[in-house]
Simulated assay, not measured.
Amino acid sequence: MNISIDREALAKSVQDVMKAVSTRTTIPILTGIKLTATASGVTLTGSDSDISIESFIPLEKEGKLLVDVKRPGSIVLQARFFSEIVKKLPQQTVEIETEDNFLTIIRSGHSEFRLNGLNADEYPRLPQIEEENVFQIPADLLKTVIRQTVFAVSTSETRPILTGVNWKVEHGELVCTATDSHRLAMRKVKIESENEVSYNVVIPGKSLNELSKILDDGNHPVDIVMTANQVLFKAEHLLFFSRLLDGNYPETARLIPTESKTTMIVNTKEFLQAIDRASLLAREGRNNVVKLTTLPGGMLEISSISPEIGKVTEQLQTESLEGEELNISFSAKYMMDALRALDGTDIQISFTGAMRPFLLRPLHTDSMLQLILPVRTY
């Protein structure tokens, strides 16, 4: 292989595929990045066998020459060293040439590195996915959907299925649900697909977090292809594969209360800031608990007590408050996570009693909800 390549384009691709490279792997070659040069451009691949990312650099883009392939070929280079080298090379153009025994020479300006490469034929092949059932979501919407759900996945491996987000596709709608059994986040979006597709899969939260980091913010479409055990996200010049989690996701629809005894509408930002202030003392106490009490005249009291440190109380005017009086305690962290995920200046919170789960929703849409279980305080 012998190529010269634009350093910025190379650095961007290296940064993207590095998100899939693990230092802790039982397959030594997976600590490397695979480079493949063909007549049409250069492909970089990184994988930890759960996630695989492939980034393609075309010969030219928008009239700018990015790659000159003098001799096609492929090589695997140690990811950690290669990524650091690329970042720090002095000139805009990088030459990469492989010699006998996979020795690889990287030149830029007056700088020359010689790296011991590995045989690219030994690098595991990426899954071959039949692209029969494809649906599309704009990249910026996909990032929003991930942001509004993935934070609620479980971090505990006791129930591995809960470490992922449940993606259900039917009737032209995608419903994404995440829960750690103490809270739940759900988001619905309309999707475009060629034919009537339906799926019910669980994508690891870790995969979705990494995908979100490398997607651009534009509204260009991302193709999504599902199979029995893999999902593929295809953006421009980027393929992102993730394995799916095995097992059945719990039926969450029955957890969502259908009636409420107390309903309030609050300004999202004011409410979030009040919870944030109350949590300053709650953090020191046990598991960050804040108490909410309804008062006459549509007022709320938000308070927190930490016996060793002190007490905080704050009153807040709601936009509206209807139903029974309420005295409820909950995790400040869960409440703040939920509020940050919701769009809109005002939100509606519906309670069905002090010990029942309660719902947070933006006004005028049912495309999104957050559910939180209260905390018992004795």
Rank of each mutant, 00 (worst) to 15 (best):
T98E: 14
T98C: 06
T98A: 02
E99N: 09
D100W: 00
D100N: 09
N101S: 14
N101H: 11
N101W: 00
F102C: 00
L103N: 08
L103E: 03
T104A: 09
T104E: 01
T104C: 14
I105E: 08
I105Q: 06
I105D: 00
I106Y: 04
I106K: 01
I106P: 03
I106V: 15
R107V: 11
S108C: 06
G109Q: 08
H110M: 07
H110Y: 10
H110F: 10
E112T: 15
E112M: 12
F113S: 07
F113P: 13
F113A: 07
F113L: 05
F113C: 09
R114Y: 04
R114L: 05
R114N: 13
R114E: 12
L115A: 09
L115I: 15
L115V: 10
L115D: 04
N116G: 14
N116I: 13
G117D: 03
G117H: 06
G117A: 03
L118D: 03
L118Q: 14
L118R: 10
L118V: 01
N119Q: 10
N119W: 01
N119H: 03
N119P: 01
N119V: 01
A120G: 12
A120T: 04
A120L: 00
A120E: 05
D121M: 03
E122V: 01
E122M: 02
E122P: 01
E122Q: 12
E122N: 13
Y123C: 06
Y123H: 02
Y123R: 04
P124L: 06
P124F: 05
P124T: 02
P124A: 03
P124R: 01
P124S: 03
R125M: 04
R125L: 08
L126V: 12
L126T: 06
P127N: 10
P127Q: 09
P127K: 10
P127L: 10
P127A: 11
Q128D: 14
I129W: 02
I129Q: 00
I129E: 01
E130L: 08
E130A: 12
E130K: 14
E131A: 13
E131F: 01
E131H: 11
E132N: 15
N133H: 13
N133C: 01
N133E: 15
V134G: 08
V134K: 14
V134E: 13
V134A: 04
F135K: 02
F135N: 03
F135G: 07
Q136V: 06
Q136E: 14
Q136R: 10
Q136W: 06
Q136D: 04
I137S: 05
I137Q: 02
P138D: 11
P138A: 09
P138E: 13
P138L: 03
P138I: 09
A139C: 10
A139T: 13
A139R: 13
A139E: 13
D140S: 15
L141G: 00
L142C: 07
T144W: 11
T144N: 14
T144A: 14
T144L: 14
T144V: 01
V145R: 06
I146D: 07
I146L: 05
I146Q: 05
R147V: 07
R147C: 01
Q148E: 15
Q148V: 04
Q148D: 11
Q148H: 05
T149R: 07
T149F: 11
T149I: 10
T149V: 09
V150R: 05
V150D: 12
V150L: 07
V150T: 15
F151A: 11
A152W: 04
A152Y: 10
V153W: 07
V153D: 04
V153I: 15
S154K: 01
